[in-house]
Amino acid sequence: MERFSKQYIKNTGVLLLNIRPSLVDRDTLVIDLNSPVRSLGTTVYGGGLGYIGSVIFKRVDKCFSNPSPQAYAGEIARSLGRESSAVFLTASDVSQYIYSEAEDSGVSVEGIATIGLTHPACIGGEPESRAIGTINIFILTSEGLSDIGLADLLRTVSEAKAGYLSILGLSCRGLPAVGTVSDATLVASPGGSTDYAGLGTLVGQLASRVLRNIFRSHMSSRGLDDYMRYMGYEDRDNIHPRHALLKRLELLVEEIMGIDIIPWLDRGAAKEILRIIWRISHG
């Protein structure tokens, strides 16, 4: 059993050790917790509101089509002797999980995630059949949150994820993406009386910092071709690295005008900006 993956060591600063990840095999990551915690999430098994003692990331085939994924995930948990767990099913390589932590004023937040940016979920797009989880995020805080606080933290993690992906430029056919069609998120806390965990709170800001580090780590292992693909550009030949930001700006203008959420914006000005970007990139 491999205790820590290379990516775990690479992305660890001050290890808080409230979560203990172990690779059981190349397709199974088990995270044992120091003690049971109150949790809220969208995992296929162990989701909703409850208590968990561990978290499992299970890699499955991209064409996974089990008619009862909940039963399948439950069997995985039982086979590992961890029925009181939450199970993520993902097509991503679980051995490349990313760990990040943040701490301030006695409050800590730790996160583990597997990231795959295929099948983007885009605002204004068409419904798409659910694929196997691509962005799977587990967040644990030392803050004593009530059930309302857990719901607030889940909201915060979802908002921060959407914000970072929007800045990144994840897109489908020029429409902004805020995740993928199969994301799963789980948040947990020892339990307590704190009802607030939004971005106006310390725990919310720490959670957003953890997510930022996770996405930054993912992008550090990806190249220009991946980035252009994330933005939805099919023609990626002869793209110079210095053009990546120009392409991102081009896409941003197209997204703003395509969503049409600011009706009084000057479309003529937007076209002129796009012409300027084109001249710079071809100059």
Results as ranks from 00 to 15, higher is better:
210 V>L: 07
209 R>Q: 13
196 Y>R: 12
17 L>H: 14
7 Q>T: 14
106 G>I: 06
96 Q>T: 06
186 L>D: 02
81 G>W: 12
159 E>T: 07
72 Y>L: 12
211 L>P: 01
218 H>G: 04
260 D>F: 08
125 G>F: 03
150 L>P: 03
254 E>K: 15
171 S>D: 07
170 L>G: 04
28 T>C: 10
154 L>F: 10
99 Y>D: 02
177 A>M: 05
265 L>T: 14
176 P>W: 00
251 L>K: 06
220 S>N: 12
33 L>K: 05
195 D>A: 15
252 L>E: 04
110 E>V: 07
274 L>T: 04
91 A>T: 03
245 L>Q: 14
92 S>W: 00
89 L>F: 02
93 D>S: 09
279 R>K: 14
281 S>D: 13
213 N>T: 10
209 R>V: 15
149 G>W: 02
191 G>K: 06
123 I>F: 11
244 A>D: 11
72 Y>E: 07
44 V>H: 01
251 L>M: 08
261 I>L: 15
107 V>E: 02
161 K>Y: 04
55 V>A: 00
136 N>G: 04
219 M>S: 14
135 I>A: 02
249 L>V: 12
162 A>Q: 05
212 R>M: 14
75 E>H: 08
169 G>W: 00
133 G>N: 03
207 A>I: 00
84 S>N: 12
267 R>I: 09
271 K>I: 09
184 A>W: 01
234 E>T: 13
190 P>I: 07
217 S>N: 10
23 L>H: 06
125 G>T: 06
122 C>K: 01
260 D>E: 14
246 L>H: 10
227 Y>E: 11
78 R>F: 08
158 S>K: 07
98 I>L: 13
220 S>Q: 11
184 A>G: 15
69 P>Y: 07
48 G>I: 09
5 S>I: 01
46 G>W: 00
86 A>C: 15
66 N>F: 08
254 E>T: 10
38 R>G: 04
225 D>Q: 15
217 S>K: 13
104 D>W: 06
239 I>M: 14
141 T>M: 03
100 S>M: 14
85 S>Q: 05
211 L>Y: 01
265 L>F: 11
65 S>T: 08
138 F>R: 01
173 R>I: 07
254 E>F: 10
32 D>F: 10
197 A>W: 01
54 S>K: 01
54 S>L: 05
265 L>C: 13
33 L>D: 02
176 P>Y: 01
179 G>T: 00
1 M>C: 13
119 H>Y: 10
3 R>M: 13
115 I>F: 04
125 G>N: 07
193 S>I: 15
32 D>H: 12
112 I>C: 06
249 L>Q: 10
50 G>N: 06
198 G>Y: 08
158 S>T: 10
236 R>W: 08
9 I>F: 09
58 K>V: 05
80 L>S: 07
39 S>D: 03
257 M>W: 09
145 L>D: 03
268 G>D: 12
43 T>L: 04
13 G>C: 09
34 N>S: 11
37 V>N: 03
19 I>K: 02
218 H>P: 00
14 V>H: 14
105 S>V: 11
